[in-house]
Design a protein around this nucleic acid. Structure first.
Lengths: 194, 194
DNA sequence: CGGTCTCTTGACGGAGTTCAAAGCTAGTGG
DNA sequence: CCACTAGCTTTGAACTCCGTCAAGAGACCG
């Protein structure tokens, strides 16, 4: 259990907990292991949890009316993932979460997190800041989608997620960038020829 | 000053404050009035404040390398606005904020808000939830940009911001949707003919 | 009214899509 | 350990949506 404590101090780095706080936190998280291809969350399920990625890689994606997949987010080590729109309002997911590289994750329910907010105010501050960063990142992504052609977005993406190729297929990246696999392939060819 | 108190209970609805809390809040906000066309924030300025829109309408926009404007957000009554990426890290704005309809706003600095978080924990909860909602809204917008053609995005926008036409020019809406004024005009024509 | 700002319309061009097929690659079983 | 298959990527040709450029028509404000 010292081992487990060390995990939670990794998750909430920069916060020092008392022994009781540590055990309170521990009792509100649950470990899950997933293998490549498994689905963590299906659309239309009610979303009660958010997930901390300790290791591995997952992606959130949305399936539109015509059946096309759109990747909203990849989550690697030390990222949080969920269908947050649904999680915040405890309503039905519109997205799916899929494991794309064997993963160890820790899940926590909305109820549990409210308990932690109440008992350990630094946890609320921690998540407020997480949200702020996520908010800022989405803002950048919207601007990038509005102002840059696909090639620039791809280069920007590869710089921001170095080493991601190991976990992620090109068609995942294409669906994240909002283009088809074919277009991405042509862009990659163009870049390789430079 | 009863008048002023009522403004802050509008801003932080659902929170009940003591008299001392009320005066602490009051002393950390500052009122500004803006007329149409005025700029509240220029890119490259360091961002120390965020702003509550009491009345009127503003927009945040980004100017790309080729000089094109991209609208990230409109802010109407009861919305908060800033260049949040820069505000959270107290760094230089990459966006501009412009008044597009005469406005009364209340500004608060990052320092002040940290004081309020510390003195009045419900305020931190309030902003955490605001962030969660903003985060979810951006998520939806990204999905909409990825999965819907311009016409659908326009219809969705008009449903979500009813009555916005009064404040906002079509070229603002176009720059929000990521299309040109000409394209928006053709889309509007198409819809009118249905 | 006159001028400037905003919106519309048309002709053309380009970035990205669609559909179809072929070429790789990696994992599986014989 | 090779062969086969299924999944992934590449390529080509035709098409489509939206952008660009240019000009004209409204609309709003002094």
């Amino acid at each position: 259990m010292n081992f487990e404590n060390s995990i939670f101090s990794e998750i909430f780095k920069d916060i020092a907990f008392t022994a009781e706080e540590n055990s309170l936190i521990r009792s509100n998280f649950e470990q899950i292991t997933l293998i490549k291809g498994e689905t963590l969350l299906h659309s239309n399920e009610i979303v009660y949890h958010q997930y901390y990625v300790y290791d591995g890689c997952l992606r959130t994606f949305f399936i539109d009316d015509s059946g096309k997949e759109h990747t909203l987010q990849f989550a690697m080590k030390d990222w949080w993932i969920s269908d947050y729109t649904a999680f915040f309002s405890t309503s039905k997911a519109i997205m799916n979460i899929e494991c794309i590289q064997d993963a160890t994750i820790y899940k926590i329910s909305k109820e549990s997190i409210e308990i932690l907010y109440h008992q350990i105010p630094q946890i609320e501050t921690f998540f407020r800041k997480k949200m702020e960063n996520g908010f800022a990142a989405f803002q950048k992504r919207i601007l990038s989608n509005l102002s840059q052609p696909a090639k620039e977005r791809y280069i920007y993406f590869m710089n921001n997620y170095p080493n991601i190729e190991q976990s992620v297929k090109n068609y995942h990246i294409a669906s994240y960038l909002g283009i088809t696999t074919e277009s991405l392939s042509r862009i990659r060819k163009e870049i390789a020829q430079e």
